[in-house]
Amino acid sequence: MPPKSSLPRRAAKSPTLRKIAVLIAIVLAYQIWLSVQAQGKVGPGVGAARDDRGRFPVDVELGFAPERYHILRLQMHGRIAGTDGHVVHLRGVAPAGVDELARWYWIKHIEAPKSES
């Protein structure tokens, strides 16, 4: 009777499980990259002018003119107050919304508005 190999050894030899492990590693690496690059996107002064509900206005800079998709996604975190070229003005954004926005790869920068409108 041949010796039985252990479960981890058989799993390591399985091509399907190796592919799943590689896929999980890629997804984890992408999530780590999103978290690291999000740290430098939020400018100073964001969240300084909070209202009584703890929400505040932000200006979201994109690397391109926003399209309908981007506007709809941004509306999930605040009210659209207008656009200027590549900048979308959001009002009523929560701190958790800023954290979520900073993780989106297509957002270049998030700043406090220069003047209240």
Score class of each variant (00 low, 15 high):
I107G: 07
P15V: 06
K41Q: 08
G78F: 03
V36M: 02
D51T: 06
R10T: 12
I24T: 10
F56V: 03
D59Y: 07
P3L: 13
P3S: 13
G92D: 07
A81M: 09
S6P: 02
A94V: 03
V42I: 15
D99N: 10
S117A: 13
H70I: 03
G45F: 00
L23W: 10
D59F: 04
A96T: 04
V42H: 08
K114L: 15
E111G: 09
F56E: 02
V93G: 05
R53Y: 04
E111Y: 12
A48D: 13
L17Q: 08
A12D: 13
E116I: 10
A49G: 04
Q37M: 14
L90E: 01
A29G: 04
I26F: 04
L72G: 01
L34F: 07
H77G: 08
K4V: 10
A38L: 01
S117K: 11
Q39T: 11
I80E: 02
L17K: 04
V22P: 00
H109R: 15
K13F: 09
A12V: 05
A38N: 06
L90N: 05
L74T: 06
L34R: 15
D99W: 03
M1Y: 10
W33N: 02
L90D: 05
K108I: 08
I24S: 09
W33M: 02
M76F: 08
Y105M: 11
M1G: 15
I32W: 08
P2Y: 07
I107E: 05
G82Y: 00
S117P: 14
V58K: 04
R55Y: 08
T83Q: 14
V98D: 01
P57N: 01
V36H: 04
R9H: 15
A94I: 04
V42S: 03
A48Q: 10
R103F: 00
G45Q: 07
E100M: 06
A112T: 13
H89N: 08
R73I: 01
V98I: 03
V87Y: 04
K4E: 12
V42E: 05
R103V: 01
D84M: 09
V60K: 03
T83D: 05
L101Q: 03
S5Y: 12
A25I: 05
A12Q: 14
W33K: 08
R9F: 13
E100S: 10
I110L: 04
V36W: 09
P95T: 00
H89I: 02
P2M: 09
E100C: 00
W33Q: 00
G82L: 01
V42T: 11
M1I: 12
Q31N: 10
R9M: 12
I80L: 11
R10Q: 15
G54T: 05
S115P: 00
Q39E: 11
K108A: 13
I20M: 11
T83A: 13
L90M: 03
L72Q: 15
T83W: 04
D52N: 02
Q37A: 11
Y69T: 12
K19I: 00
A21R: 15
W104F: 06
G45M: 01
F64D: 05
A25Y: 07
V42F: 07
G54D: 02
Y69P: 01
T83G: 00
L34Q: 15
V22D: 12
G92F: 06
R103Q: 06
G47T: 03
P2A: 14
